[in-house]
Amino acid sequence: MSCNSCHDLEKYGVDSMPTSRGFKGQIGGRNAPTVYNAAGHLAQFWDGRADDVEAQAKGPVLNPGEMGMPSKAEVEYRLERIPGYVELFKQAFPGEPKPVNFHNMAQAIAAFERGLVTPSRFDRFLKGGGGLSPQEAKGYQEFQAAGCASCHNGPYMGGNSYKKLGQMKPWSNESDPGRIAVTHLDKDKMVFKVPSLRNIEKTGPYFHDGKIQTLDEAIKLMATHQLNRNLTNEQVADIGAFMKSLTGDIPKAYIAKPELPR
């Protein structure tokens, strides 16, 4: 399996599964977040256990529940056996005595991921180059009036803070305690990185456990549990319409699958 198995670049960087399957078909514990626009977040993974995409790219390769490679040395051994990769590593990391190594593998994947951006109609609107539809504009106002923007803001509409899931009303399933597993601080129980809303229409199912299938339901749950608000169906529809303006253009040329060295 590859990075693209769970983070399919043709499908907005997700696999559309509640949680992904590893190399033996084993079921993972959390929903695979999209890789698009992710490199700009304050940290990686739902619990922020990797500081950046360079650190993140090392994780799944060795995770026995994901790609399951036995060691860094084994990864390096496999890459060194492919002459095309040896040459490509030399070109990518010039002057290094041993360019084919696990660290450089992650650096290269991360450099590629740093180009995975999906500008949308909302960006064109922010730049003054186009309008939102009447419903989207109404949803944009509702989004702010409801308080969604207190967490979902900045260029990524999220991804820049951690928040307790169930801030105003406890979340129904606390089996995954979130960031406390990383920090071991009580204050981080049920705390997760605020996900980006970029391409949210295309990246369900939703939340860290992928239990919520529809965007409308996700909006209602967030309003109730994070903001202590009950939105009408019309408000939910309007906010959902606004969120769909965040669906961006996939960079087809940038993500085109190359012929792999053998």
Binding site: S5, Y85, Q91, A92, A108, A110, A111, F112
Partner: peptide
């Protein structure tokens, strides 16, 4: 800390798809 040079991005794209 990890400049996006063309050769690095090219390699990273291949590794991303490498099964």
């Amino acid at each position: 800390h990890n400049p996006m040079t063309d050769p690095k991005v090219k390699l990273g794209r291949m590794l991303y798809y490498e099964p």
